[in-house]
Design a protein around this nucleic acid. Structure first.
Length: 396
RNA sequence: GGCCCUAUCGUCUAACGGUUAGGACGGAAGCUUCUCAAGCUUUAAAUCGGGGUUCGAUUCCCCGUAGGGUCACCA
Protein backbone atom coordinates (compact mmCIF):
# COMPACT_ATOMS: atom_id res chain seq x y z
CA UNK A 1 0.00 0.00 0.00
CA UNK A 2 1.72 3.14 -1.13
CA UNK A 3 1.34 6.25 -3.25
CA UNK A 4 2.15 4.23 -6.35
CA UNK A 5 -0.89 2.05 -5.94
CA UNK A 6 -2.99 3.73 -8.56
CA UNK A 7 -6.66 4.53 -8.79
CA UNK A 8 -7.67 4.00 -5.24
CA UNK A 9 -11.38 4.57 -4.89
CA UNK A 10 -13.20 4.38 -1.58
CA UNK A 11 -16.74 5.13 -0.71
CA UNK A 12 -18.91 5.87 2.27
CA UNK A 13 -22.45 4.71 1.85
CA UNK A 14 -24.76 5.95 4.57
CA UNK A 15 -28.43 5.15 4.53
CA UNK A 16 -30.55 8.29 5.01
CA UNK A 17 -32.77 6.76 7.65
CA UNK A 18 -31.60 9.04 10.41
CA UNK A 19 -29.43 12.04 11.12
CA UNK A 20 -25.66 11.85 10.87
CA UNK A 21 -24.51 9.27 13.39
CA UNK A 22 -21.18 9.19 15.22
CA UNK A 23 -20.36 5.80 13.78
CA UNK A 24 -21.06 7.03 10.26
CA UNK A 25 -18.93 10.10 10.81
CA UNK A 26 -16.07 8.04 12.13
CA UNK A 27 -16.19 5.53 9.28
CA UNK A 28 -16.33 8.44 6.86
CA UNK A 29 -13.24 9.92 8.48
CA UNK A 30 -11.28 6.70 7.96
CA UNK A 31 -12.35 6.50 4.33
CA UNK A 32 -11.45 10.13 3.85
CA UNK A 33 -8.05 9.73 5.50
CA UNK A 34 -7.29 6.66 3.44
CA UNK A 35 -8.29 8.36 0.17
CA UNK A 36 -6.39 11.57 0.87
CA UNK A 37 -3.34 9.80 2.19
CA UNK A 38 -2.95 7.64 -0.88
CA UNK A 39 -4.16 10.13 -3.43
CA UNK A 40 -7.39 8.28 -4.10
CA UNK A 41 -10.97 9.26 -4.75
CA UNK A 42 -13.61 9.46 -2.06
CA UNK A 43 -17.19 8.81 -3.12
CA UNK A 44 -20.25 9.54 -0.99
CA UNK A 45 -23.27 7.45 -1.84
CA UNK A 46 -26.70 7.78 -0.36
CA UNK A 47 -28.16 4.30 0.02
CA UNK A 48 -31.84 5.03 -0.12
CA UNK A 49 -33.22 1.91 -1.73
CA UNK A 50 -35.60 1.57 1.20
CA UNK A 51 -38.26 4.08 0.20
CA UNK A 52 -40.19 3.61 3.41
CA UNK A 53 -37.43 4.61 5.77
CA UNK A 54 -35.28 6.95 3.70
CA UNK A 55 -35.96 10.65 3.93
CA UNK A 56 -34.53 13.61 2.09
CA UNK A 57 -34.17 15.54 5.34
CA UNK A 58 -31.91 12.84 6.71
CA UNK A 59 -29.80 12.91 3.59
CA UNK A 60 -29.54 16.67 3.91
CA UNK A 61 -28.55 16.32 7.54
CA UNK A 62 -25.84 13.78 6.74
CA UNK A 63 -24.37 15.90 3.96
CA UNK A 64 -24.47 19.04 6.08
CA UNK A 65 -22.87 17.28 9.02
CA UNK A 66 -20.09 15.81 6.96
CA UNK A 67 -19.46 19.19 5.38
CA UNK A 68 -19.37 20.82 8.79
CA UNK A 69 -16.79 18.27 9.89
CA UNK A 70 -14.72 19.07 6.82
CA UNK A 71 -15.08 15.59 5.36
CA UNK A 72 -15.65 16.53 1.75
CA UNK A 73 -16.30 14.06 -1.05
CA UNK A 74 -15.17 13.96 -4.66
CA UNK A 75 -18.35 12.47 -6.11
CA UNK A 76 -21.88 11.99 -4.88
CA UNK A 77 -24.47 9.41 -5.93
CA UNK A 78 -27.94 8.48 -4.83
CA UNK A 79 -29.12 4.93 -5.30
CA UNK A 80 -32.70 5.91 -5.98
CA UNK A 81 -31.40 7.67 -9.10
CA UNK A 82 -29.82 4.46 -10.31
CA UNK A 83 -32.63 1.96 -10.07
CA UNK A 84 -32.59 1.12 -13.77
CA UNK A 85 -28.95 0.07 -13.50
CA UNK A 86 -29.74 -2.41 -10.74
CA UNK A 87 -32.78 -3.62 -12.65
CA UNK A 88 -30.63 -4.43 -15.66
CA UNK A 89 -28.37 -6.50 -13.45
CA UNK A 90 -31.31 -8.34 -11.93
CA UNK A 91 -32.47 -9.20 -15.44
CA UNK A 92 -29.02 -10.45 -16.38
CA UNK A 93 -28.86 -12.58 -13.27
CA UNK A 94 -32.30 -13.98 -13.90
CA UNK A 95 -31.28 -14.86 -17.46
CA UNK A 96 -28.00 -16.45 -16.44
CA UNK A 97 -29.68 -18.43 -13.69
CA UNK A 98 -27.67 -16.88 -10.85
CA UNK A 99 -30.97 -15.56 -9.52
CA UNK A 100 -34.56 -16.75 -9.76
CA UNK A 101 -38.09 -15.70 -9.03
CA UNK A 102 -39.34 -17.32 -5.87
CA UNK A 103 -42.91 -17.75 -4.67
CA UNK A 104 -43.34 -16.57 -1.10
CA UNK A 105 -45.89 -16.41 1.63
CA UNK A 106 -45.91 -12.81 2.85
CA UNK A 107 -45.28 -12.69 6.58
CA UNK A 108 -45.93 -9.01 6.91
CA UNK A 109 -48.17 -6.52 5.14
CA UNK A 110 -46.52 -5.09 2.07
CA UNK A 111 -44.41 -8.14 1.36
CA UNK A 112 -44.46 -9.59 -2.13
CA UNK A 113 -45.71 -13.01 -3.14
CA UNK A 114 -42.83 -13.23 -5.57
CA UNK A 115 -39.28 -12.06 -4.84
CA UNK A 116 -35.91 -12.42 -6.53
CA UNK A 117 -33.59 -14.79 -4.76
CA UNK A 118 -29.92 -15.34 -5.35
CA UNK A 119 -29.00 -18.86 -6.38
CA UNK A 120 -26.46 -19.66 -3.73
CA UNK A 121 -23.63 -21.88 -5.03
CA UNK A 122 -23.07 -22.92 -1.39
CA UNK A 123 -19.33 -22.63 -1.20
CA UNK A 124 -16.65 -21.53 1.20
CA UNK A 125 -15.50 -17.95 0.84
CA UNK A 126 -12.27 -16.56 2.25
CA UNK A 127 -11.35 -12.92 1.92
CA UNK A 128 -8.40 -10.90 3.09
CA UNK A 129 -9.32 -8.08 5.39
CA UNK A 130 -6.75 -5.31 5.64
CA UNK A 131 -7.40 -5.02 9.36
CA UNK A 132 -8.28 -8.56 10.36
CA UNK A 133 -6.40 -10.81 8.00
CA UNK A 134 -8.11 -13.78 6.38
CA UNK A 135 -11.77 -14.24 7.22
CA UNK A 136 -13.61 -17.39 6.19
CA UNK A 137 -17.27 -18.17 5.81
CA UNK A 138 -19.30 -21.07 4.57
CA UNK A 139 -22.06 -19.46 2.55
CA UNK A 140 -24.30 -22.51 2.79
CA UNK A 141 -25.82 -21.14 5.93
CA UNK A 142 -26.90 -18.04 4.01
CA UNK A 143 -29.35 -19.91 1.85
CA UNK A 144 -30.79 -18.35 -1.29
CA UNK A 145 -31.04 -14.85 0.11
CA UNK A 146 -33.31 -12.22 -1.40
CA UNK A 147 -31.63 -9.60 -3.59
CA UNK A 148 -34.74 -7.77 -4.85
CA UNK A 149 -38.34 -7.46 -3.75
CA UNK A 150 -39.24 -7.71 -7.39
CA UNK A 151 -37.22 -7.37 -10.59
CA UNK A 152 -37.86 -3.62 -10.38
CA UNK A 153 -37.11 -3.22 -6.67
CA UNK A 154 -33.48 -4.06 -5.86
CA UNK A 155 -32.34 -4.48 -2.27
CA UNK A 156 -29.21 -3.47 -0.42
CA UNK A 157 -26.76 -6.27 -1.22
CA UNK A 158 -27.38 -6.13 -4.96
CA UNK A 159 -27.26 -2.34 -5.13
CA UNK A 160 -24.05 -2.16 -3.13
CA UNK A 161 -22.24 -4.69 -5.27
CA UNK A 162 -23.41 -3.16 -8.53
CA UNK A 163 -22.46 0.34 -7.42
CA UNK A 164 -19.05 -0.64 -6.11
CA UNK A 165 -18.45 -2.39 -9.41
CA UNK A 166 -19.72 0.43 -11.63
CA UNK A 167 -17.93 3.06 -9.57
CA UNK A 168 -14.70 1.06 -9.63
CA UNK A 169 -14.42 1.02 -5.87
CA UNK A 170 -11.11 -0.58 -4.90
CA UNK A 171 -11.36 -0.55 -1.11
CA UNK A 172 -14.40 -1.06 1.05
CA UNK A 173 -13.87 0.35 4.52
CA UNK A 174 -16.86 0.03 6.78
CA UNK A 175 -17.87 -0.92 10.30
CA UNK A 176 -17.28 -4.40 11.59
CA UNK A 177 -21.02 -4.90 11.80
CA UNK A 178 -20.87 -5.37 8.02
CA UNK A 179 -18.41 -8.21 8.17
CA UNK A 180 -21.12 -10.85 7.91
CA UNK A 181 -22.53 -9.11 4.83
CA UNK A 182 -19.28 -9.56 3.00
CA UNK A 183 -19.70 -13.21 1.89
CA UNK A 184 -23.11 -12.39 0.39
CA UNK A 185 -21.66 -9.51 -1.51
CA UNK A 186 -18.70 -11.51 -2.73
CA UNK A 187 -21.10 -14.16 -4.02
CA UNK A 188 -23.01 -11.53 -6.00
CA UNK A 189 -19.75 -10.08 -7.33
CA UNK A 190 -18.74 -13.47 -8.62
CA UNK A 191 -22.14 -13.94 -10.21
CA UNK A 192 -21.98 -10.67 -12.16
CA UNK A 193 -18.28 -10.90 -12.91
CA UNK A 194 -17.22 -7.99 -10.73
CA UNK A 195 -13.72 -7.85 -9.26
CA UNK A 196 -13.44 -8.18 -5.51
CA UNK A 197 -12.48 -4.98 -3.72
CA UNK A 198 -10.11 -5.01 -0.78
CA UNK A 199 -12.02 -5.08 2.49
CA UNK A 200 -11.16 -3.32 5.72
CA UNK A 201 -13.61 -3.75 8.57
CA UNK A 202 -13.25 -1.03 11.15
CA UNK A 203 -13.63 -1.69 14.87
CA UNK A 204 -16.92 -0.57 16.35
CA UNK A 205 -17.56 2.17 18.89
CA UNK A 206 -19.06 0.92 22.12
CA UNK A 207 -20.93 2.58 24.93
CA UNK A 208 -19.83 2.21 28.55
CA UNK A 209 -21.63 -1.14 28.68
CA UNK A 210 -19.64 -2.36 25.68
CA UNK A 211 -22.60 -2.35 23.36
CA UNK A 212 -22.73 -0.91 19.88
CA UNK A 213 -23.81 2.73 19.88
CA UNK A 214 -27.39 2.88 18.64
CA UNK A 215 -29.88 5.66 18.14
CA UNK A 216 -32.55 3.57 19.77
CA UNK A 217 -30.67 3.15 23.02
CA UNK A 218 -28.51 6.26 23.21
CA UNK A 219 -30.61 8.97 21.66
CA UNK A 220 -29.01 12.35 21.16
CA UNK A 221 -25.52 11.26 22.10
CA UNK A 222 -25.14 9.46 18.78
CA UNK A 223 -25.99 12.47 16.63
CA UNK A 224 -23.24 14.71 15.36
CA UNK A 225 -25.64 17.62 15.62
CA UNK A 226 -25.65 17.27 19.38
CA UNK A 227 -21.92 17.91 19.55
CA UNK A 228 -22.13 20.72 17.06
CA UNK A 229 -24.80 22.42 19.15
CA UNK A 230 -22.76 21.97 22.30
CA UNK A 231 -19.96 23.89 20.69
CA UNK A 232 -17.52 21.14 19.90
CA UNK A 233 -14.97 21.97 17.24
CA UNK A 234 -14.97 19.76 14.13
CA UNK A 235 -11.26 19.10 14.55
CA UNK A 236 -11.73 18.08 18.17
CA UNK A 237 -14.38 15.56 17.16
CA UNK A 238 -12.32 14.28 14.26
CA UNK A 239 -9.21 13.96 16.41
CA UNK A 240 -11.24 12.05 18.99
CA UNK A 241 -12.80 9.76 16.38
CA UNK A 242 -9.44 9.02 14.81
CA UNK A 243 -8.01 7.96 18.13
CA UNK A 244 -10.77 5.47 18.72
CA UNK A 245 -9.29 2.70 16.65
CA UNK A 246 -6.13 4.29 15.39
CA UNK A 247 -2.94 5.83 16.70
CA UNK A 248 0.07 7.35 14.98
CA UNK A 249 2.60 5.15 16.72
CA UNK A 250 4.05 8.11 18.55
CA UNK A 251 2.94 9.78 21.75
CA UNK A 252 1.54 12.77 19.95
CA UNK A 253 -2.21 13.02 20.30
CA UNK A 254 -3.30 16.38 18.94
CA UNK A 255 -3.85 16.47 15.20
CA UNK A 256 -5.81 18.68 12.83
CA UNK A 257 -7.50 17.03 9.87
CA UNK A 258 -4.64 17.67 7.41
CA UNK A 259 -2.22 16.38 10.02
CA UNK A 260 -4.29 13.24 10.42
CA UNK A 261 -4.17 12.69 6.66
CA UNK A 262 -0.40 13.01 6.80
CA UNK A 263 0.01 10.63 9.74
CA UNK A 264 -2.60 8.06 8.80
CA UNK A 265 -1.74 4.49 7.89
CA UNK A 266 -4.24 1.65 7.64
CA UNK A 267 -1.75 -0.68 9.32
CA UNK A 268 -2.19 1.13 12.60
CA UNK A 269 -5.94 0.69 12.75
CA UNK A 270 -6.99 -1.44 15.72
CA UNK A 271 -8.97 -4.65 15.69
CA UNK A 272 -10.84 -4.26 18.95
CA UNK A 273 -13.81 -1.98 19.54
CA UNK A 274 -13.32 1.30 21.41
CA UNK A 275 -15.48 2.65 24.21
CA UNK A 276 -16.81 6.14 23.67
CA UNK A 277 -15.37 8.29 26.46
CA UNK A 278 -16.84 11.79 26.67
CA UNK A 279 -14.13 12.93 29.09
CA UNK A 280 -11.49 12.27 26.50
CA UNK A 281 -13.53 14.18 23.91
CA UNK A 282 -13.66 17.15 26.29
CA UNK A 283 -9.91 17.01 26.60
CA UNK A 284 -9.47 17.01 22.82
CA UNK A 285 -11.85 19.96 22.66
CA UNK A 286 -9.78 21.87 25.22
CA UNK A 287 -6.60 21.17 23.31
CA UNK A 288 -8.10 22.27 20.03
CA UNK A 289 -9.45 25.46 21.56
CA UNK A 290 -5.88 26.24 22.61
CA UNK A 291 -4.90 26.00 18.95
CA UNK A 292 -7.29 28.86 18.12
CA UNK A 293 -6.38 32.57 17.98
CA UNK A 294 -6.70 34.33 21.35
CA UNK A 295 -9.93 36.12 20.53
CA UNK A 296 -11.56 32.92 19.31
CA UNK A 297 -10.62 31.28 22.59
CA UNK A 298 -12.39 34.04 24.50
CA UNK A 299 -15.65 33.11 22.79
CA UNK A 300 -15.45 29.62 24.22
CA UNK A 301 -14.75 30.92 27.71
CA UNK A 302 -17.62 33.35 27.39
CA UNK A 303 -19.90 30.52 26.34
CA UNK A 304 -18.91 28.14 29.12
CA UNK A 305 -18.85 30.67 31.90
CA UNK A 306 -21.91 32.58 33.02
CA UNK A 307 -21.04 36.17 32.13
CA UNK A 308 -24.38 37.70 33.05
CA UNK A 309 -24.46 40.64 35.43
CA UNK A 310 -23.59 39.34 38.91
CA UNK A 311 -25.36 39.93 42.19
CA UNK A 312 -22.52 40.95 44.49
CA UNK A 313 -22.14 39.96 48.11
CA UNK A 314 -20.54 42.88 50.01
CA UNK A 315 -18.76 40.47 52.33
CA UNK A 316 -16.96 38.77 49.49
CA UNK A 317 -15.51 41.76 47.70
CA UNK A 318 -12.50 42.14 49.96
CA UNK A 319 -9.94 39.36 49.84
CA UNK A 320 -9.29 37.20 52.89
CA UNK A 321 -8.02 39.31 55.79
CA UNK A 322 -7.99 42.61 53.93
CA UNK A 323 -10.53 45.29 54.70
CA UNK A 324 -13.35 46.75 52.61
CA UNK A 325 -11.44 50.04 52.71
CA UNK A 326 -8.45 48.41 51.09
CA UNK A 327 -10.62 46.78 48.45
CA UNK A 328 -12.25 50.12 47.77
CA UNK A 329 -8.95 51.86 47.39
CA UNK A 330 -7.59 49.18 45.09
CA UNK A 331 -10.66 49.08 42.89
CA UNK A 332 -10.60 52.87 42.57
CA UNK A 333 -6.96 52.76 41.60
CA UNK A 334 -7.49 50.04 39.05
CA UNK A 335 -10.63 51.50 37.48
CA UNK A 336 -8.82 53.92 35.16
CA UNK A 337 -6.34 51.22 34.13
CA UNK A 338 -8.97 48.80 32.84
CA UNK A 339 -7.48 48.05 29.46
CA UNK A 340 -3.89 47.99 30.60
CA UNK A 341 -3.04 44.60 32.02
CA UNK A 342 0.63 45.45 32.52
CA UNK A 343 -0.19 48.50 34.60
CA UNK A 344 -2.70 46.65 36.75
CA UNK A 345 -0.22 43.86 37.36
CA UNK A 346 2.49 46.34 38.27
CA UNK A 347 0.18 47.92 40.81
CA UNK A 348 -0.94 44.53 42.09
CA UNK A 349 2.67 43.50 42.64
CA UNK A 350 3.19 46.33 45.06
CA UNK A 351 -0.24 46.45 46.70
CA UNK A 352 -0.49 42.69 47.03
CA UNK A 353 -1.81 40.55 44.22
CA UNK A 354 -4.67 39.10 46.16
CA UNK A 355 -5.69 42.45 47.54
CA UNK A 356 -6.05 43.83 44.05
CA UNK A 357 -6.94 40.89 41.84
CA UNK A 358 -9.52 39.19 44.02
CA UNK A 359 -11.79 42.25 44.40
CA UNK A 360 -11.36 42.98 40.73
CA UNK A 361 -12.23 39.47 39.64
CA UNK A 362 -15.10 39.21 42.09
CA UNK A 363 -16.51 42.56 41.04
CA UNK A 364 -16.49 41.39 37.44
CA UNK A 365 -17.79 37.86 37.88
CA UNK A 366 -19.60 37.85 41.21
CA UNK A 367 -18.18 34.38 41.73
CA UNK A 368 -15.52 32.94 43.96
CA UNK A 369 -14.37 30.75 41.10
CA UNK A 370 -14.00 32.16 37.63
CA UNK A 371 -11.49 32.82 34.87
CA UNK A 372 -8.88 35.44 35.69
CA UNK A 373 -9.90 39.13 35.74
CA UNK A 374 -8.02 40.04 32.57
CA UNK A 375 -9.82 37.40 30.60
CA UNK A 376 -13.09 38.59 32.06
CA UNK A 377 -12.38 42.19 31.09
CA UNK A 378 -11.54 41.20 27.54
CA UNK A 379 -14.83 39.36 27.24
CA UNK A 380 -16.91 42.08 28.92
CA UNK A 381 -15.30 45.03 27.21
CA UNK A 382 -14.10 48.21 28.80
CA UNK A 383 -17.48 49.80 29.35
CA UNK A 384 -19.20 46.84 30.98
CA UNK A 385 -16.11 46.12 33.10
CA UNK A 386 -16.07 49.70 34.40
CA UNK A 387 -19.77 49.50 35.17
CA UNK A 388 -19.35 46.34 37.22
CA UNK A 389 -16.42 47.79 39.14
CA UNK A 390 -18.50 50.88 39.89
CA UNK A 391 -21.29 48.73 41.27
CA UNK A 392 -18.87 46.94 43.57
CA UNK A 393 -17.57 50.30 44.74
CA UNK A 394 -21.08 51.43 45.60
CA UNK A 395 -21.42 48.51 47.99
CA UNK A 396 -18.22 49.26 49.84
C1' G B 1 -28.33 -20.92 19.69
C1' G B 2 -25.38 -20.99 14.45
C1' C B 3 -21.65 -18.24 12.11
C1' C B 4 -18.01 -14.46 12.57
C1' C B 5 -14.86 -10.90 15.16
C1' U B 6 -12.11 -9.38 19.44
C1' A B 7 -9.05 -9.69 24.13
C1' U B 8 -2.58 -4.75 27.73
C1' C B 9 -4.31 0.00 33.54
C1' G B 10 -11.58 1.98 34.73
C1' U B 11 -11.14 4.17 29.38
C1' C B 12 -8.16 5.30 24.51
C1' U B 13 -3.69 2.91 23.52
C1' A B 14 2.34 1.83 22.86
C1' A B 15 5.60 -2.21 23.03
C1' C B 16 5.88 -5.59 15.47
C1' G B 17 10.28 -12.53 20.93
C1' G B 18 14.40 -9.71 25.22
C1' U B 19 11.39 -2.84 28.26
C1' U B 20 11.70 -1.42 35.53
C1' A B 21 5.20 -3.21 30.24
C1' G B 22 5.44 3.38 28.00
C1' G B 23 1.95 7.57 27.01
C1' A B 24 -2.95 9.95 27.29
C1' C B 25 -8.02 10.65 29.66
C1' G B 26 -10.15 10.07 34.25
C1' G B 27 -8.77 9.25 39.75
C1' A B 28 -5.67 10.41 44.11
C1' A B 29 -1.95 13.58 46.43
C1' G B 30 0.86 17.89 46.42
C1' C B 31 2.52 22.64 44.55
C1' U B 32 1.08 27.33 42.76
C1' U B 33 -0.04 34.06 47.53
C1' C B 34 -6.29 36.33 43.02
C1' U B 35 -10.00 31.78 42.70
C1' C B 36 -10.03 26.92 40.23
C1' A B 37 -13.05 24.77 36.44
C1' A B 38 -6.52 26.68 34.78
C1' G B 39 -1.20 25.28 35.13
C1' C B 40 2.82 22.24 37.11
C1' U B 41 4.67 17.87 39.85
C1' U B 42 4.12 13.16 41.94
C1' U B 43 1.30 8.78 42.36
C1' A B 44 -2.07 4.31 42.18
C1' A B 45 -3.72 1.33 38.18
C1' A B 46 -3.05 -3.63 33.04
C1' U B 47 -0.77 -8.12 29.72
C1' C B 48 -8.31 -13.08 30.75
C1' G B 49 -6.95 -18.55 32.04
C1' G B 50 -4.42 -23.12 30.66
C1' G B 51 -1.27 -25.59 27.57
C1' G B 52 2.50 -25.53 23.98
C1' U B 53 6.87 -23.38 20.53
C1' U B 54 11.37 -20.86 22.26
C1' C B 55 17.30 -19.69 25.78
C1' G B 56 13.28 -16.12 26.38
C1' A B 57 6.64 -14.66 25.47
C1' U B 58 2.05 -9.00 25.93
C1' U B 59 3.90 -10.58 21.21
C1' C B 60 3.61 -17.00 17.63
C1' C B 61 0.19 -21.73 17.85
C1' C B 62 -3.86 -24.57 20.28
C1' C B 63 -7.84 -25.07 23.78
C1' G B 64 -10.86 -22.70 27.05
C1' U B 65 -13.21 -18.23 29.08
C1' A B 66 -15.23 -13.55 28.48
C1' G B 67 -17.12 -9.68 25.56
C1' G B 68 -19.07 -8.10 21.00
C1' G B 69 -21.24 -8.33 15.99
C1' U B 70 -24.64 -10.70 12.87
C1' C B 71 -28.42 -13.96 11.58
C1' A B 72 -35.12 -8.89 7.43
C1' C B 73 -38.98 -8.66 1.32
C1' C B 74 -33.41 -2.61 6.68
C1' A B 75 -29.03 -0.79 5.39
Amino acid sequence: MNEHTNNIVVRMAPSPTGNLHIGTARATLFNYLFAKKYGGKFILRSEDTDKERSKKEYEDNILAGLTWLGLTWDEFYRQSDRTEIYVSYVKKMLESGSAYISKEEPKEPGQRTEVVRFKNPNKKIAFDDLIRGTVEFDTTELGDFIIARSPEEPLYHLAVVVDDFEMKVTHVMRGEDHISNTPRQILIQEAIGAPRPVYAHLPLIFDAEHKKLSKRKHGAMVWIDTYKEEGYLPDALLNFFAFMGWNPGTEREIFTLPELVEAFTIERVQKGAAVFNIEKLKWFQKKHIELLPAEEQLKFIAKDFDMSEPVLDKEKIAWKQSTPEEARKNLETVLPMIDDEAMIMAYAEEAGKGNVLWPLRYALSGKEKSPDPFTLMKILGKEESAKRIQRALELL
